[in-house]
Each structure stands twice: as C-alpha cells, then as structure tokens.
Write a protein that binds this DNA or RNA. Structure first.
Lengths: 217, 217
DNA sequence: AACCAATTTTTGTGATCACAAATCTTGATT
DNA sequence: AATCAAGATTTGTGATCACAAAAATTGGTT
C-alpha cells in the first residue's frame, strides 16, 4: 500500500514563505541576504533555506553574486524593459486563454479582490495592495489552465515585485490606479477584445508608473 | 581587497552536468532518479545534487512527485501543446531581436554548427544532433542580449528535450529535417521577415514531427 | 503459482560539522 | 584623522549523520 504523507515539508513551507516575502515587497533590491540569517528568522536549519534559495535563484527572484553572496537583484533600465516586454507578450495571451473558463462566480470573486485592493491602496498598505494585485491577476491567469505559461509569468512577477515596492516607498501610491474594473466589466460583457485590452492597459499603466521613477533606474 | 575565487563550485558543475544530460536527451521521461545514485555517478556527495535538483525543478526540467521521488516529467498531449504554444510566442520574437546583432562571423559560425548538426543526424547520433540544434538556436537567441526572455526559453527547452529524445528513439531521424539553412540565408540577405519565418517554420516542423508520434501522447 | 504481511533496504529530509573564503574588527603606524 | 595589515568573525559550501517514510525483499499461507 502506498501511504503518501501530506504534511508540508520544511523545504516547501520555507519556499512559500520566502516567495511571498519577495512577491509582496518585503525584500528590497540590493539588500544582502544571509542563509543563516534567513534560517534563524524562519526557525529552521540552513539546509532547507539553501535549497529554497537555489529554487528562487533559478526563477530569477534571487541572485548569486560572484562572491557567493545572495541578494535581491538590482533593477536596471535594461532589465526593466525586458521584463515589461515579456509581460506584454505573455500576460494578455494568458488572460485571453483564461476568459472562456471564467464564470460569474469567478467574476464576483475578482470584484471582491479588487475592492480589497483599492482599500489597501487607500490605507497606504503597500503589501496589501501588492497581494491584492497579485491575487487579481493570478485568479485570472490560473483559469487559463496552462501551467507552462503560468510558471513563466510567475517568474516575471518575482523579478519585478521587489522593485515595485521600492518605487512605492519613494513615490507613494497616490498616482497609482489600475484597470481592474474595466477588466471585470469586459468579463461581464464577455467581450474578449476589451478584456485583453484592459489587461494590457493595466499592465502598461503599472509598468509606466514604476518606470517613471527614473531616479532609480 | 575583494578576492573572488573563480573556480567552479561543485554545485555549479553538478548543475551543468545534469542540465546537459537533460537537454541533450540522456534522461528519459518517467525514469526515476535517486539523489544518491546521481551523486555517486557524478562523484559528489548528495548535498550539491539536492540543490541542483531543486534548481532544475524550479525550471520545470524535473518533477517532485508527491511521494517525494524525483523524475523527468512524463509528456502529455496537453503539456506538449502548451510548450509548443509558448515556444511559438517567444522564440521568433527573440530571434527577431537578435538579428541586428548577428554579424558575418556569427553567420559563418551558424553555418558551421548546422553542418555538424546534419552530420550527426546522418550518423544517427541523437545526442549530437540535439546538441547541434541547441547550439544553433541559442547562438542566435543569445545575440538578442535579453536575459529575461532567454531564461524563459531555456526553461521551455529543458521541458521538451527529454521527450524529443524519446520520440527519436521510436521513429528514428530519417524523417527529420530543419530550416536552418533557410534561416542562415535570410540572415545573409538581412531579411528579417524571412528570418523570423524560418525560425517559426523550423520550430513548427520540429514540434509537428514530435507531436506526430501520438502513440506516446 | 499467487497473494499478502513482516522484515529489510533504500531513499529523501533536515540538522550538524569541518573548512576555506570573504568580511569585519582592531590597533598600530604614518 | 587616515591608512593598512593582522587577527577574529561571519558566511557559503560540501560531507556526514540520524531519522522517518517509501520501496523492495522475504517467507509463509492459501
């Protein structure tokens, strides 16, 4: 009889914890990270942390410098444009694929997420905003039922998220807006062209906002 | 003074060794892989192997089953189409970006690679063919000077390579052809449209050949 | 022979140890 | 005060150990 243990390994929970930290802006670019430091803060031994760091390095969320130190990569203007370019290719495509699988219940959930996101923005809760924005997009993207494209897009989000946070810290969120409502309206109307455009607009607007703070790039 | 050691870590060489094995068809889908077995065959301790496996799992080249065993993922018809779709989106784009940076010397090198690749095909040297095919494409892609897109495409190749080899083992290479010469001719003529089309054709032809062996999917 | 439970072996996981390289600290010299 | 070399500390790396879970083997029963 095969008895598969379904408890999360320390490795897996460590990975998820660190991934969330990166994705929701709790790790800033350039800040050095030590394995033992991370291990202590998470209450585990260095071993699973090392493996987690390898995973996230493979996903380009972390960077192994040539002196073997681990860090969140610094953003450059060039890399920023590359990420923006890749997102514009992949995400509208993924959203379009997802559309036929998005039912009324999902639309309702998206609207709820958006309300929470706006609330977080209003309260200057950066991490809350980033989490809401992530949830909105990936609730859509997951509906595409396309693991290959989804994991590519996950990697892209891991790469720009820390920088997103850095910009918010400098500029605040007042000038920030999104096209989420336009997207949900397009979904309600089952207008695939309007939906794809809303995702593209949302993405471009967000990236333009970030890119506009050229003091950092 | 910063003194950085430039010797390759065991981790890095292990990663490259295993990655090449996967990329050039020396690991077949479904075959179970053990950490200790890999470690012994590479002459290292299990530690760097574990970290390598985590990296390649993050790149979707390996799969951690729910019984915690490591394996090359089995191909399914669905996943095959997803990979094909993603490749068709990303690779012609990357090739087009690369074109302006491809000089005569690079074209010469591409032609040399293609000759070697054809020779390997003629001699029924599967691994040699796969290596040549990889070199041809990535010599182009690297010229795009776009690390973000390049790493996404790397991940895709790691995903279909083992299956490519599996098909060749069943069908042989006699029916296999490529559009490499058409691509190099387009480069010589600086015809970007013809070049993009050649890359697309090459990719479609290769994937159709693989996909045609529907006994496996 | 076929089946199944008990035992043995193999395997992944997480922690710890040893070591060398990189970084930080210290204190003497100019 | 600034500089720099020597010593101390921290850090990443690779190997090993202990353990539990999974797989393979064994041997007895039908």
């Amino acid at each position: 009889m095969n008895q598969v243990s379904n408890t999360l390994t320390v490795n897996e929970s460590t990975y998820r914890a660190l991934k969330e930290k990166i994705l929701f802006g709790e790790m800033l670019p350039g800040r050095p990270v030590t394995l033992r430091g991370l291990a202590e803060s998470l209450g585990v031994s260095p071993t699973p942390v090392r493996e987690t760091v390898r995973r996230l390095t493979a996903e380009r969320a972390l960077n192994l410098q040539d002196n073997r130190r681990v860090s969140i990569p610094e953003m450059t203007a060039k890399r920023f444009q590359e990420i923006r370019h890749a997102r514009l290719i992949l995400e509208p495509e993924l959203a379009t694929l997802a559309m036929i699988n998005i039912d009324k219940k999902t639309i309702k959930r998206l609207i709820d997420i958006d309300i929470k996101t706006d609330l977080a923005l209003y309260k200057n809760d950066f991490s809350g905003y980033m989490r809401g924005n992530y949830d909105f997009h990936f609730t859509i993207y997951r509906r595409a039922n396309n693991d290959v494209l989804l994991s590519l897009v996950e990697s892209l989000w891991l790469q720009f998220a820390p920088y997103m946070r850095q910009v918010y810290n400098h500029l605040g969120t007042t000038a920030l807006d999104d096209q989420h409502r336009m997207a949900t309206k397009a979904l309600e109307n089952r207008d695939s062209i309007a939906f794809k455009n809303a995702i593209m607009e949302d993405l471009q607007q967000g990236m333009t906002f970030i890119g506009a703070s050229n003091t950092l790039l």
